[in-house]
Design a protein around this nucleic acid. Structure first.
Length: 301
DNA sequence: AGCGGTCAAGTTGAT
DNA sequence: ATCAACTTGACCGCT
């Protein structure tokens, strides 16, 4: 049984997450700053609830939460603790209510920290800041019952082996709130499934198989072989990623995402599975793309 | 109300 | 050297 997942935002449905910028906040007096951040945090908790309700009502089984759900949370100058915000208890309650709702209706939630989170960097400062950001997302994950914080392996720096050794060492030091949720995903520039699977298998880190990235950056392993090994890294329902190329596989930039999913891009190896599986749909048309793909899967029986 | 410029951050590969 | 791409345009501030 495949559970389709929606990534972060909506296309047609009028559910929007709010954001702000450090530049704007720095111009505000401290009190006004915290009021503003509290307002956004509360609005985003409400938007998350609305997102989960939409998912329940539309047969969407998973929702990826934007890394900016609490904007500029770990910024060096305007970062903050939730407890600094007016009404923080109510905000936290609102997030916890999302967690209960997700549990009750079996809507899985996850995080995908952005590209600035690099655990394999040779710069200690960058690794520290990345870890702090992961800790913030883990805190929210705790409230909302998200079981996945998925990252890429980061830069190669001309020496993938060395970078992976650094990555492994950093992962060993992570607190349990991050470590128990951390997953690794292959990318379309540097790290293939062949690069990451051994580390995932050795460390017990679930491997998020992005088949689109794998097709952009092949490594000699077949999709069915990667699928099988990836399934083996999960101690819970596996989560994979799917997208289609914007202008076809022969187009100039196959790594760009299409608005929709071409059903032909669904790996046969996933359809054959007898196991439960979450597939995050990375398509620009968002819930509209999921509805279309869902219809196709149903028609298939 | 509409619209243009701006926004914390890293790394890579295309142009 | 610059820029787009990456999970994703939103929002401020001016007219």
């Amino acid at each position: 049984m495949i559970r389709l997942g929606l990534c972060c935002i909506f296309n047609e449905e009028p559910i929007r997450f709010r954001r702000t910028t450090a530049a704007y906040l720095k111009r505000q007096a401290p009190a006004a700053r915290l009021d503003r951040l509290a307002e956004i945090a509360a609005a985003n908790a409400a938007a998350l609830k609305a997102s989960l309700v939409y998912c329940r009502d539309n047969g969407i089984g998973a929702f990826r939460i934007n890394s900016q759900i609490l904007p500029v949370k770990t910024h060096p100058e305007v970062g903050y603790s939730l407890s600094d915000l007016p009404g923080s208890a109510r905000i936290i309650d609102a997030f916890k209510s999302c967690g209960r709702f997700g549990r009750r209706h079996d809507i899985r939630t996850s995080f995908h920290p952005d590209q600035f989170i690099v655990l394999s960097s040779p710069q200690k400062d960058l690794v520290d800041r990345s870890t702090a950001d992961l800790a913030y997302q883990a805190e929210v994950a705790e409230w909302v019952n998200a079981d996945v914080i998925n990252i890429h392996a980061g830069g190669a720096y001309g020496d993938k082996t060395g970078a992976l050794i650094r990555l492994e060492a950093v992962i060993e030091t992570l607190p349990a709130s991050i470590r128990t949720r951390l997953t690794l995903e292959n990318d379309d520039r540097s790290y293939t499934p062949r690069d990451l699977l051994p580390l995932c298998e050795r460390m017990g880190i679930p491997f998020v198989y992005d088949v689109h990235h794998h097709r952009c950056l092949p490594d000699g392993l077949t999709e069915s072989a990667v699928t099988r090994r990836a399934m083996g890294t999960w101690n819970r329902e596996p989560l994979f990623h799917l997208s289609s190329p914007a202008e076809g596989w022969a187009g100039p930039k196959p790594n760009r995402h299409h608005d929709f999913i071409d059903p032909a891009d669904l790996p046969a190896a996933w359809l054959d599975l007898d196991l439960d599986l979450t597939v995050d749909v990375e398509a620009k048309a968002k819930e509209t793309a999921i509805a279309r793909l869902r219809q196709h899967l149903r028609a298939q029986g």
